[in-house]
Design a binder for these strands. Structure first.
Lengths: 332, 332
DNA sequence: CTGTTAGCGCTTTCAC
DNA sequence: GTGAAAGCGCTAACAG
């Protein structure tokens, strides 16, 4: 692999000059510059980011962290974030950590400059520890965190409000018996993180309670693996008080539920209404078009990268919030 | 950020001993080891992979390269490959290069140890250049390449055969007027790469020709962006000789086509049959269940990582091939 | 069993 | 405008 030394020798300059040319960091005689550039092209020299990182202690490497790549929500965001990172000269590595705690350790050894955390699995303490190690952190938060380090930037979408409106829509349609089926994500660290109140869940509960729903009027279920959905839905179908609306924690789960219902001959939405959440791209492509909550995901990638870069460059920044919006489809 | 020096000082040993402990690369007195490990834990020291990489010229970093993360095919593979890489102590960065040539340049500066290329966009020359720079290359190839460097390992799925069988199935069902709609991927570099014969396309053509289909009996279309699908399908619907079977280049495209057809009131498969390709997870989840070709994608990730590691470790390896298989669903 | 040391490829200060 | 040199954190050969 050709190094800067060879370039310097062949161009009859010192290694410093090669640096100046590459980084445009110092005056270089036009003729010299040309000569160096020619040699670089001839030799196919490419600066070694690893050495540069070691010297500058900036890896130009950002990590996108999530825990369920099987939910199209994450790849969709990841693709956009990758693009935005690249455009700013950063490498983005996408990390689906799953439920495996050891993986983050490996990641930390690579000394990423920043992490975009789109996962509810970390406790405030863990996130703060990252930040205190000097890693820029942008957190897309679906739940409450207590005592986050002030250097952590949050992207907040008003999910509580979105779910509230969705529930109000369903109540308006006459639904009175609900089930809430969500991924198990937010439960795992419940103890560790104090009160990890998931906004989707709490809005669901609050609206049911507000209407005056009894214990009998709703069911809460959570799935870890998709193949559990059949069992859960089956259980619901056999409930004494018939569930008329299933509120899924995200679009991916909603689709699975609908598919299973249809395979059992249950019509959606005539027999049971099903709603999603997130408005992933597929929500409007696959049939039935999902009634879901639009998170305006297209704002996410630019916002995340902009925030990350501002933190890295020690520029001031603010937390970013935006609204979510109910989108009526054919499923409820 | 705490470095090895501090650990050494606090544990009253030389920096070398700290290395020995971490890497298990030399005898260390049990007591000393214990002392060092204690200090490491206390200080929360994490080895700096960047410095290590510079020294060993092994980045322990693998890149997954694709060009269309919007097709669920790629995230699905990416998730599995990430896991397999992690389990072997490698960081995997996922790179959706899109159609942007400059992005690969950035990636190369990071001196990845290997690349898993799941993209048809590179020419043999480009791939060979990567390999000659000492990057381990595993290529998931959908088309013919000429004169690939022998150090490039290929994962080949018998796609030609799969598409052939799919066509034979359709011909058996009485279809005689076809359209082939594929992503534009394989066309872009047509000139540059000599004869980039895409197996899906050639099998489609060959089977039609074999049956004796005239020029009128099939149409070839390719899409770059999903929103072109409406126009293309519209065009097909207005053809003089009515198309009865649409053969999509992949499942994602098939779903879009079906969705558009249904929105126009065209029934699938009664009015028009549609087939997919790849058997992504969603092919059997969303309705109608796709008639598609199963590529046994679950074999991919382990195979790719195993091959990559063998190349990196200079162990012998072989190209890997396996069959594809028609899976009959409800769409054709 | 432990320590000393050279050097990976680069940036950057300072001297010329 | 250009060059010499120090040093980022680590590994590994070698000496003791």
């Amino acid at each position: 692999m050709v190094s800067r030394k060879e370039v310097a020798e062949k161009a009859n300059v010192s290694q410093a000059v090669v640096s100046y040319v590459i980084n445009n960091s110092n005056y270089v005689n036009a003729k010299t510059r040309e000569r160096v550039e020619k040699v670089i092209a001839e030799l196919g020299y490419r600066p070694n980011m690893i050495a540069r990182s070691l010297k500058t202690s900036q890896s130009h490497h950002i990590a996108f962290v999530c825990n369920d790549f099987n939910n199209p929500f994450f790849p969709q965001i990841a693709a956009d974030v990758t693009k935005a990172a690249f455009e700013n000269g950063y490498l983005l590595s996408i990390n689906d950590l799953g439920y495996d705690d050891t993986r983050i350790e490996l990641l930390l050894q690579y000394k990423v400059d920043g992490m975009f955390i789109a996962s509810d699995l970390f406790t405030s303490e863990e996130i703060n520890a990252f930040a205190q190690q000097g890693i820029a952190i942008v957190l897309f938060s679906n739940r409450k965190y207590h005592n986050l380090d002030p250097s952590v930037a949050c992207i907040k979408i008003d999910i509580y409000d979105g779910m509230s409106r969705l529930m109000i829509y369903l109540l308006g349609k006459g639904h009175r018996n609900f089930a809430f089926i969500s991924s198990a994500r937010f439960e795992k660290r419940e103890e560790a993180s104090g009160a990890p109140e998931n906004y989707r869940y709490s809005a669901f509960k609050d609206r049911v309670a507000e209407w005056g729903g009894s214990e009998e009027s709703f069911t809460i279920e959570s799935v870890v693996a998709f193949d559990q959905i059949a069992d859960i839905v089956n259980k619901l179908l056999h409930k004494r008080t018939k569930v008329t609306a299933i509120v899924a924690g995200n679009d991916a789960i909603a689709f699975m539920i609908i598919e299973y219902l249809q395979s059992r001959g249950v019509r959606v939405p005539q027999d049971v209404a099903v709603t999603g959440f997130d408005a992933i791209r597929y929500a409007s492509i696959f049939s039935p078009k999902l009634t879901t909550v639009d998170l305006h995901l297209d704002w996410m990638s630019q916002t995340a990268i902009t925030l990350l870069l501002r933190i890295i460059r020690k520029q001031p920044y603010k937390h970013v919030c935006w609204d979510s919006e109910v989108r009526i489809g054919d499923s409820a």
